[in-house]
Every structure is written in C-alpha cells, then in structure tokens.
Write a protein that binds this DNA or RNA. Sequence first.
DNA 1: AACTGTGGCCTGTCGA
DNA 2: TCGACAGGCCACAGTT
Length: 793
Amino acid sequence: MPQKLVFWLLDINYDVESKTPVVNMWGLTEDGKKVLVKDYSFRPYFYVLPKMGVDLSKAVKDIKLLEDPAEPIISIDLVDKKYFGKPVKAIKVTCLIPQSVPSYREKIGRLSWVEDVLEADIRFYMRYLIDNGVNPCDWHEVEVEEEKVPPGFELDAVYRALSRPQPILKDEPPPLKVLSFDIECYNKAGSPVAQRDPIIIISLVANGESKVMTANDHDDSSLLKEFVEYIQKFDPDIISGYNSNHFDWPYIQARAKLHGVKLKVSRELTEPHQSVYGHISIVGRANIDLYDYAEDLMDVKIKTLENVADYLGVMPKDKRILIDYIDIASYWDDPSKRDLLKRYAEEDAVSAYGITMEVLPFAIQLSRLTGVPLDQVLAASVGFRVEWYLMRVAYREGELVPNRVERKYEPYRGGLVLKPKEGLHENIAVLDFSAMYPHLMIKYNIGFDTYVPPEESCNPDECYVAPEVGHRFRTHPPSLYRKALEKLLELRKAIRDEMKKLDPKDPYYILLDNRQRAVKTMTNAMYGYLGWTGARFYLKPCAEATAAYGRQTIMKTIKMAKEMGLNVIYGDTDSIFVKYDESKVRAFIERVEKELGLEIKLEKIYKVCFFTEAAKKYAGLTIDGRIDVVGFEAVRGDWCSLAQEVQSKVLELILVKKNVQAAINYVKDVINKVRSGKVDIKDLVIWKTLSKSLDEYEVEAAHVQAARQLLAAGHRLEVGDKIGFVVVKGASEKISGRVKPYIFASMDEIDKEYYARKQIAALALRILKYFGVSEEQLLTGVKQASLFDFLRR
DNA sequence: AACTGTGGCCTGTCGA
DNA sequence: TCGACAGGCCACAGTT
C-alpha cells in the first residue's frame, strides 16, 4: 500500500539487482527508525558533445551502432545545454546500468565527430542526489511502498520509492547513535605491523557509555569477533575514530583477514571498504575519521588525539593517563600495569567520542550544504566540497560540467601587501572589507561562462575589463560563480538574522551557528577554487582578474584614506591599518562604501601596535587588554617553545609596560638559565613536518637528519609526521650535522650557545633591535640600556 | 583551494 | 683551499 515517508538521509550507495540499478538511501525517521528507501527508477547517463557543424542525426545513428546488446542503451536524446556559457546541442546517452558508462564513454570518445564526452565520471548515487535535489543530512518526504527487509539487513523497514524524495523544511537531525573507538596494538618492536602484532585493546564509547574490550593475552581473534558483535548489537549511525581511515580500520581489516573473521559491520552486513578521498565506507552508517577535522585546526600544532581533545576541552591533558606509545607492549605484559593501559585506552575512546560530539553538528551542516555524503565530507578536500556545490548550481542552470583534466601548475599574481611603518604606534584602527573577493566576483560578473576571450569582440558597455590583466567578462547574464556566491551570501545573512532572534544557548541557535560557519567556509573557499588547476571549472583569467580587482580596490581604498587625512600604517589584501580618528574613520567607511560599492568594517582598535620592517608580522594590544601576535615566530611551530615564550613575553613588556629595560633583563635571565642548563629539554625541542619522503629531499635539512636517526632506530615514519629534534654539541659546522631526535637527547649534550644565540636572543632581538638593543647586550655584560622615548608620535 | 611573505639554513660559486 | 655571498630549498604563517 502506498504511503508517505519522512526520512533523514544518512548514507547513500547503489546496487544492481537483476540488471536494474537501485539507489539505496539509508535513512532515519522522526521516531528513530532505521529505514532503507530504494529507488529503482533512476538511470545513469552522460553527454556527448559533437564538434561544430556535425550532422546530429548521423551522430545519433553512430552511437546506436556502437550499442552492445549485453549492455543496453536506453535512450539517445538531443538536448539543449550550455558549455562554458555558450548554448550547445548535446547528446544525452542513457544506459541501463552504471557499469556500462565507462566503456561507452571510451568507445564514443573515439568517434571522429566527437568533441568530448562529459559527465561520464560522476558517480551514480551523486548523480541521483544532484538531479533530484536530494541532500544528505536533510529531511525528505517520499511516497513509498513497504517491502520485506532482506535477511541480514539491520533495519526496521525497507521501502520502494514510488516518487522522488522531496526535501522538506525541517532542521533538527534525528537522534543519532554514535560509536567512537580506538585500538591499541602490541608493538614491542617499534611501530606495529599487522601481520605480526595483535590488537590488544579495543576501547569504545557508544552513546556516552564506555567499554574496553581486550585480547586473550596475545590472541585477538575473539576480540575482533566481540567488536563486530558489539557494533551489530549497538547498531550505530555514526562510527568514528582518530586516524581510523588510515590506521585503525586497515589494521583491523588485516587482523581480521589473518583470523578469517568477517567484519560484518555495515547495515547490510558487508565489510568496510575503501572509497573516495581515502575514506573507509561502512554501508548504511557514516564512518568518520576525526583526523580529517583535526587537520583544519591550525592552533593545534602537533595533531595527536590527546592534543586535539585537550584543545577542544574534551579531555584535559593534565587530567588523563598518558602512556608513551613505545611502552604499550610492556604495560600489557606487566599484570600490575595492564589496568592502567586499559584506562589509557578508555580515555582515548572518550576523547574520540568527545571530539565527535564537537565536530558532528558542523559536519552535518557541511554535508547538507555541499551535498557530499556525511562520511565523505570531512575526508574531501576544500576543492572537492566547493566543486560538488558548484555542480549542483551547474545542473540547475543547464551548464555542462567540464571533465577533470590534469594541468600544470600555473601561478598568478595575488593580493597586495604593504610594507608597514615600523616601530610602535598608538591607537590604530584595523579596517577590513567583508568577503572582498566574493563581492568582487559578483560585482564584475567573473566566471568561466562569462569570460570573453581576446579574439572575441564585445561591446565595451557590455563587458567589464579587469585592471592590469585586461581580462573581459560579460556583464550579463549572471555567471555561475555569481549565482553560487549570491546564494551563499544571501543564505548566510538569512541564517544570521534568524540567529539574532534566538538565545545563544538555544540548541537551534547552535545548529544555525554551525550552518552559517559551513556557509562562510564555502564562500571563502570559492576564490581559492578559481585558482586551483585541478578544478573542473578552472579558467585562469577568473583567478587573475579577481586578484587584480582586489589590488585595485585596496589601492583605491588607501588613496581615499590618505586623501581624508588618515595615516595608513599597513595593509594586506583587503585590510588597512590607520591611525584611529573616530569621525574621520566613520566618514571614510561611508565614502568607501559609496564609491566602491563594497562594505568595509572597523574590525578592531589597537591601543598599541608594533611593526617591524617585515610584512605579515605585527603585535597589537587590544582595547580589552589582550595581545594579538601575528606572523611572529612566537606563533610559528618551527621554533623551540622557550624562544617563543621569550618573544611573547618581550612583546608584552614592550606593548603593555613599555619597559625596554625589563625586557632586556628578562631575556638575559633566560639566556643565563639556558647556559647553565636550568631549563627543561622539552622546551628546546624544534618541531618540523616531514613534507615528503626522505629520499626526495634535495638538501640535508636538520629535521630530515633527525628523521633518518629515528628511522635507523626502528621508528616508522610517514609523510606529514612532525619530527621533534634538538641541536647538540658536535664537530659539524652544519646544524643538520648535529641534531638529535629529542627522545634520544639529554641536557648535557645540548648546544647551549646555539639556543642562547640563534633561538632566544634572535627572537628577542626581532623586537628589541627597534629599541636600540644589540645582540651583544643580551649575550654578554651587564651594560645598562639607556631609556629613551621610543614612541612614535 | 590560491598567492604573498619571512627567515633559517644548505650548497654552489667566485675571488683571493 | 677557504671564506663570503647569493640563490634556492624548506617550513610555516597570513590573507582570501
């Protein structure tokens, strides 16, 4: 009997059942039921773009001739589409099953009259989502007929769709069952090897309750079975782990294979499998790797689970058990320590669960907005998220999606950065354009579909000409980028208006806040997408013109500021720093908005602000007494923490106390402590990322040398790992010749003079030299610096 | 996703 | 052969 079903889309995949493709929508209902909605009515297709002037009826016949009866073509239709904004006749070829698409693409692509075969590489279920306006992580209504639940499926009901799902207005996701897990391996000799080392603990938290499962000494076969059974019984909607896509799941898979254990953890009791963007898919559930999210947390320099959990306030580092990864095996083997190890594992799972609860609301909104399924959206890079969003816009506009092609890297000129006026300044206003690039793209209708190539003519009043670069864009119709951006900006405004009516503690407010953050992220990423040579919609002039308009805008802005008597101290891309004068600044903001048609905002005011001669580096004391440190080594992860601390403290003494002598004394004191070894070696560690494999390095950098030592000692290293090393005494002239991984080093071998000079004094002097302090002054003697008036007026 | 910019250190080159 | 210098490699941060 037909009925209406309302469901929230959690996961999507497809199957082929007796030569019919079926889209499986794994959903949840309002009353918490797990359902599967099967749509048998959608067919895969792609487009063939004929060359100019080709006889289309002959073209259609040619395609028909290529048909393989074993893989039927359902229809061949002539359709009107647009390609790079130009109207084109395309041939839409619809097949019976998705598997036939690649071979037809190949065969048809070889026909002489074919310009290109398009959209043949879009995965079937993504095609379904785009064409039907169905969104992951959103509510839909669909007409259905109930079917039997197939044996082995973990579901409350299965339905056959009788209509296409329609999105309905409903925001709150259903209650989701979340399971986070972590594994510990028996790694006696360096890094664990799946073929050799068993899993000894699987700890997990399911809807807030933790559980620690253990191996039978060194036998993990029953542990694996227990884990599978637990997942089946708890039946989570969300499964998460930390680095689980690249470590836990592959490890579990390898161990399970060894023992012949079937990992029937999906909702159709199939095993996890590798999918797009390097993520692991578990059908019917959303498997999320929290590391994908951690990568975006710029403030966490070393992205271990405990650091991320600490940063998010989920599990404070000083209130939990931490066991060095090297000691895990010995803890397991020592009966008196095994419980401690179990607690450690439990706390890891609790951390993972806590992070999941922080991330999930945002991931849900990002998935809903971009149309990328929840289990993929964090794994997908920014470019792909933007691209899927644009593909939906393109579909609605009848614009054909270009193929993915490999292009060589093509740099272009970017934003304008001013040389700052060095020294101390008082009362500085920071003014910022809001979303400058997006607004410029809209204003000048920039797009691959509005671009006028040099050989083409265009009426001057019907096109915009970008400064410096001269690229032209038609003033109408609106470009695809413009449409996408207008929609995003409009959406953000609507969300923020709605938020204003709510209490910030209201759960709905928090939902909307996550939504507006997702929209903002996408808006900001659009410009970067323009310049990405891997983008389907890539056209270099778009990026070049946008950046050129940006430079023009900021130059005009600076000119206006000067004309109005504002002293411009610094500026970067879309911001200017001026000496604050309330009435002048107010008038300036009005004039900019009137003359440039762009919104500029008074972002903040610094009571005191310090610049060196270098761009992208400054420190400012805000009205509420905080210190912003931008670009200085104190906020960079590649200096030892002691030197960073010294630089921060010096900045504070200068900005707040305005006391140079106190700063000198302080630095000298630290240098003395370093020289006498009265510092913690941990504060001398320098961390650097291994950005490629060791043999790819052209020079012997310090961290590369340290990495080689780690490798020789049996540590497993991967690209992206952070190498922590210290500089030690030795014969070598080169720093790289006398580094040691910090775990091998002791205080007495530290090259204390290196730290005194090249780390501590160097960073202090970065600031103090502007106040007449010399290196010698910090490193030797007790010479008193003369106090002088260092304020610029 | 892009470019801009800083700055350490390595390494090749050039002049003495 | 040695030291100084310059250019390049490298990592990272900041702006969008």
